[in-house]
Computed example of a mutant assay.
Amino acid sequence: MPPSVARFLWRAFAVTALLGLGSARAEAPDLPLGLYPSYPPLDMRDTTTGDLEGFDVDLATALSQRMGMTPRMVETGFAQLIPSLLTGRIRMFFNGMVDTPLRRESVSFVDYLQSGFQFVTLSGDAHAPSSLPELCGRRVAASRVTSVPAELLAWSDRNCAAKKRPPVLLFATENSADARLQLREGRVVAALQDSLTLPWTVEISGHTLQALGEPFHLSPLGIGLPKGDADFTCRVSKAFSALQQDGTYLALIHKWHLPESAALPTQPVPKACTDHAP
Rank of each mutant, 00 (worst) to 15 (best):
T61W: 02
D43H: 10
A60E: 08
P37E: 07
R45D: 01
S106Y: 15
I90V: 14
S23R: 06
L18Y: 11
R45E: 12
A62I: 07
L86K: 14
A60K: 09
M92A: 06
D99T: 14
L81Y: 13
P101S: 02
D46R: 05
A79I: 08
V98R: 13
I82A: 03
T48N: 11
P29V: 04
L81K: 06
Y36E: 06
E105H: 13
F55Q: 05
T49C: 03
S23Y: 15
L81F: 12
L19D: 03
T48L: 07
M69E: 05
S84T: 05
R91V: 00
V110R: 04
G34A: 09
D111N: 15
R89Y: 13
N95V: 01
P32D: 00
M44Y: 07
L59I: 04
R91W: 02
M97E: 12
M97R: 08
R25N: 06
M44R: 10
E105Q: 13
M73H: 15
V98S: 12
F13M: 02
D51A: 14
R103V: 05
V110K: 01
R25Y: 12
D58M: 07
L102P: 08
P83V: 08
P71G: 01
L42F: 09
T61H: 05
M69R: 12
N95M: 08
R89M: 02
G34T: 02
A62E: 04
T61L: 03
P101F: 03
R103C: 06
L31K: 09
A24V: 14
V107K: 04
V57F: 02
Y112K: 02
R25T: 03
G54Q: 06
P29G: 04
S64C: 05
Q80L: 10
P40M: 03
G96A: 04
N95F: 05
G88S: 07
V57A: 04
D58P: 09
P41N: 02
G54A: 10
Q80I: 01
A17L: 15
A79P: 00
D58N: 11
L102K: 14
D56N: 15
L33W: 07
V98M: 05
R89P: 15
R45W: 09
Y36L: 02
A79Q: 14
E53R: 14
S38N: 12
S108F: 13
F93L: 02
P32T: 00
E27Q: 15
L63R: 00
M97H: 05
N95Q: 14
D99Q: 15
L52W: 07
F94P: 00
P37S: 12
T61A: 05
P32H: 00
P101E: 00
Y112E: 00
P83Y: 08
A62F: 04
S108Q: 12
E53S: 14
R104I: 09
R91Y: 04
T87C: 02
S64K: 03
G54L: 08
F94D: 00
L19Y: 08
R66P: 06
L63S: 00
Y39D: 09
L86A: 05
A26N: 13
G88K: 01
L42I: 04
Q80A: 13
R66F: 01
S23W: 15
V74R: 11
G50N: 06
M73I: 14
L33E: 13
L59K: 06
P37W: 08
D30G: 08
P37M: 06
P101L: 00
S64A: 15
R66C: 01
